[in-house]
Nucleic acid binder design. Structure first.
Length: 816
RNA sequence: GCCCCCGUAGCCCAAUGGCAGAGGCAAACCCCUUAAAAGGGUUGCGGUGCGGGUUCGAAUCCCGCCGGGGGCACCA
């Protein structure tokens, strides 16, 4: 093999890696190396790996291999998120079992990963659809249930009419199903929930620990959690004994409340509507129920509503205000009812204008009367028409009114969150059965731990077709069981868990994949965790990444993990697009990863992805040239191949200029990798390659030890991105029988980083007029004198300069 | 509508207060070659989207626009 032949290298080295198994994490207690845990979001086995996978796994592999080279004990595992709808749909179509499709795809992907040369510890491989895995979902569910963190409730839920299942709030994106894009509708169903809202404040507070997460990711989570401060206020409603509570962030505007609105779908509306208004209300409620989320949430939609015939009493001034039902008030936020202050809230104002309700200004903002302009004034100002609050600022008024309300027992300051509990039941088959047995006498009874796992019954093909209830319901033998408590006849819960449950803790399972005493061995988890570097897409900002944070906190509270955040550092890779657009079948602009590898080789494809730009940026394949990457690799390979000095030779006598170039490269590349600037690091390697090329062709020649030093440095550094080329180059350099992946990261010699002279730029009025070669440790005074003495500079000066700025040793700026 | 990020050469991108250009693509030219390919080399007056400001000095900081991308959007 004297030519650079990527396919031949792949065949050779893939086999050698199988034998060497170089990326096994060590659990040896005597191994005192510092541990590092790097993890990619595990793939869903939907087919073979695609370009997006190529990108993420190339990025995470740079981090992993870098840490291996630096001598850390690295954990870099792989597994599959193998429960989920596509398998089920494929099974229905082919009249097969979902497992057949799933496990065949997993094998395909595993083979592709091996070819792609990713530095995984294959011994820890897991699949969430294995009973050995999902039994621990059930075990964890039982723990959550015991702690009151898993509960069942009825209510309106998001329903995807295409996938025929409910969805969590997080899975509804702009009113559409996150998976399939269908318009989501609302249905009244009793479902299981995880009480993530109990952790809302901590999810918010602990973001302080996540300072190395991308800012936009944190913003998305913060918005999603949606904390607001305000007050609960009790309003008496005529004809009802119990007062009705509302939540408001503007209790200071309480005197400006001119009407009261109850969510149309709230039980309260139905309860308090008068007989006279009931027919109109029923019609309205039915209309609202028909609307999809998209229609209901459309901002430019006209306000709608209906008068309920009742009046509420403003607790601070005794005013009677009419009670309306409307769909702009949400039944599941706050208390499902609001006080409306049209002067200072645009939504309330829109409603007031539509139904000709009064508008009362209570904050003097200096802006025109909202009642006339139709523009609410939510800003700051002095309170007016507000009795004891008159003259106060917003902040003062809020504090004072809360005091007043609390003294009277009419209300209190409080905090609210936008975050809702996590709906986890799914009416589909290919997931973890919820380990609950419904007994007519005992109620909801968890399946005892020792009887776990509750495995899926054998069902295939048509039996899995969506019919709005879980397919498991028709597996009669499976459903009918004895109650674990009273042994009476009972039925299993027939829903399965959201697959986001599976992915909320898989990274913990990797730490002790064969563990049988629990979901993971706490000792191992606390040694490896939390993950030092997690890599995956931003699309999981309020899904997987939020759920995993929640799970980790619960496990922490259970005493099972010592940390409260699972991912110390997070990197969101960009997407791979083509011709400015996401790749898609309908556009016909798809690029096949396997084909690219066939054409250019693994290393060239990986290099192209890494070199394209910063890892978090989208990369457009149409702008890139894997052919050029391959050319560079061939060039680097030839340098390594042509080295003529023996391995182990001392570099001391080598060509100084090249030695310095090598050590500067080491220094810079190390810093660049530490700050995740992989594309720039690659550029540095290209420079070093050129420097070595020149040294061979027109410098000291291939036998100079400095050329070996440069080539060996190149091999080690290149191994992060182009492992095959690096391995072969390393072997050609005379290092046989091992792997370059464990060669060790080079360390720059400070003596070789010192430059003997630096070019100092001399500016006059900001324009470069001269350049001086000076010592790097030249003093400011010396440099100033040198600069002023320059003839070129003198030509641009007339008399004494007004000011001289000296930034030794690189710059002098003279202001004439 | 509100908030955030980004606009540097034909293209992808470096430079984060100090000479606008590190690296790559494309292009042109040269060497090598009978020739071509491969290989080696040389070539960068665009002044950083536009307009102001701060500063001795601005791609970088501030303000306002324009363009692109993203997030949120009846959450009271």
């Amino acid at each position: 093999m004297s030519e650079y032949d990527p396919q031949a290298l792949q065949a050779k080295w893939q086999q050698r890696w199988e034998e060497l198994d170089p990326f096994r994490a060590s659990e040896d207690a005597a191994d005192t190396r510092e541990r590092r845990y790097v993890c990619d979001m595990f793939p869903y086995p939907s087919g073979d790996l695609h370009m997006g996978h190529g990108e993420v796994f190339a990025i995470a592999d740079v981090v992993s291999r870098y840490w291996f080279q630096q001598g850390y004990n690295v954990l870099h595992p792989i597994g599959w998120d193998s429960f989920g709808l596509p398998a089920e749909n494929a099974a229905i179509k082919r009249n097969a079992h979902p497992a057949e499709w799933t496990y065949a795809n997993i094998e395909t992907q595993a083979t592709s990963f091996k070819r792609y040369g990713v530095s995984f510890d294959w011994s820890r491989r897991l699949h969430t659809s294995d009973p050995d895995y999902y039994r621990w979902n059930q075990w964890l569910f039982n723990r959550f249930f015991e702690r009151g963190l898993a509960y069942r409730k009825g209510g309106l839920v998001n329903w995807c009419p295409n996938d025929q299942t409910v969805l969590a709030n997080e899975q509804v994106v702009a009113g559409k199903c996150e998976r399939c894009g269908a318009d989501v509708i609302r249905r009244e169903l009793t479902q299981w929930y995880f009480k993530i809202t109990d952790y809302a404040q901590r999810l918010l507070d602990d973001m302080d620990q996540l300072d190395s997460w991308p800012e936009r990711l944190l913003t998305m989570q913060r918005n999603w959690i949606g904390r607001s401060e305000g007050a609960d206020v009790l309003f008496q409603v005529e004809g009802r004994d119990e007062p009705v509570q509302v939540y408001t962030t503007r209790p200071d505007t309480l005197f400006g409340a001119t009407f009261f609105v109850v969510a149309a779908d709230a039980a309260l509306a139905e309860e308090i509507v008068t007989d006279e208004q009931r027919p109109a209300f029923e019609v309205y409620r039915a209309e609202v129920a028909k609307l999809s989320d998209i229609e209901r949430m459309s901002t430019d939609k006209d306000k709608t509503g209906v008068f309920l015939g009742r009046y509420a009493i403003n607790p601070v001034n005794g005013e009677r205000i009419p009670v309306w039902a409307a769909d702009y008030v949400l039944s599941d936020y706050g208390h499902g009812a609001i006080m409306a202050v049209p002067a200072h809230d645009q939504r309330d104002l829109d409603f007031a204008m539509k139904f000709e309700l009064p508008v009362k200004v209570v904050v003097h903002t200096g802006l025109a009367d909202p009642g006339e302009t139709g523009v609410a004034t939510p800003g700051e100002g002095k309170l007016v028409n507000s009795g004891p609050l008159d003259g106060l600022t917003k902040t003062e008024a809020i504090a004072k009114i809360i005091d007043i309300l609390e003294v009277d027992g009419r209300g209190q300051g409080t905090v609210n969150f936008r975050l809702r509990d996590w709906l986890l039941s799914r009416q589909r088959f290919w997931g973890t059965p919820i380990p609950i047995i419904h007994c007519p006498d005992c109620g909801e009874v968890p399946v005892p731990d020792e009887q776990l796992p509750v495995t899926l019954p054998d069902m295939r093909g048509e039996a899995l077709a969506p019919k709005g209830v879980s397919p498991l319901a028709s597996a009669t033998d499976w459903v009918n069981v004895e109650c674990p408590k009273c042994s009476g006849p009972a039925k299993r819960d027939t829903d399965t868990m959201d697959t986001f449950v599976d992915s909320s803790w898989y990274f913990l399972r990797y730490c002790s994949p064969g563990y049988t005493e629990g979901p993971f061995d706490p000792e191992q988890v606390n040694k490896w965790g939390p993950i030092d570097q997690y890599v995956g897409g931003i699309e999981h900002a309020v899904l997987h990444l939020l759920y995993s944070r929640f799970f980790t906190k619960v496990l922490h509270d259970m005493g099972m993990v010592s940390f409260t955040e699972p991912f110390r550092r997070m990197l969101n890779q960009g997407q791979v697009i083509n011709g400015g657009k996401a790749m898609s079948k309908s556009l016909g602009n798809g690029v096949d990863l396997g084909q690219q590898i066939d054409d250019f080789g693994v290393d060239a494809v990986r290099l192209t992805m890494i070199f394209a730009g910063p890892p978090e940026d989208d990369i457009d394949w149409a702008d890139l040239s894997p052919g050029a990457s391959q050319k560079f690799l061939a060039r680097a390979f030839r340098v390594m191949d042509e080295v003529a000095s023996p391995p182990g030779v001392s570099y001391d006598g080598g060509d100084l200029a090249l030695r310095k170039a090598t050590h500067h490269t080491i220094d810079e590349v190390t810093k660049l990798l530490d700050s995740y600037r992989f594309n720039v690091a690659v550029a540095r390697l290209m420079e070093l390659t050129s420097a070595a090329r020149k040294a061979i062709d027109s410098g000291p020649g291939a036998a100079d030890p400095a050329v070996r030093e440069a080539a060996e440095t190149l091999a080690v550094m290149l191994s992060l991105v182009a492992p095959y080329t690096a391995e072969e180059g390393w072997e050609r350099l005379g290092h046989t029988g091992g792997t370059v992946a464990r060669a060790g990261w080079p360390v720059a010699d400070p003596a070789l980083l010192v430059r003997e002279s630096v070019t100092c730029v001399v500016q006059v009025a900001g324009k470069v007029r001269d350049r001086l070669e000076v010592s790097p440790d030249v003093s400011e005074e010396e440099l100033r004198a040198l600069a002023l003495a320059s003839e070129k500079v003198q030509g641009h000066l007339s008399g004494e300069p007004r000011k001289v700025i000296v930034r030794a040793p690189k710059l002098v700026n003279i202001v004439p």
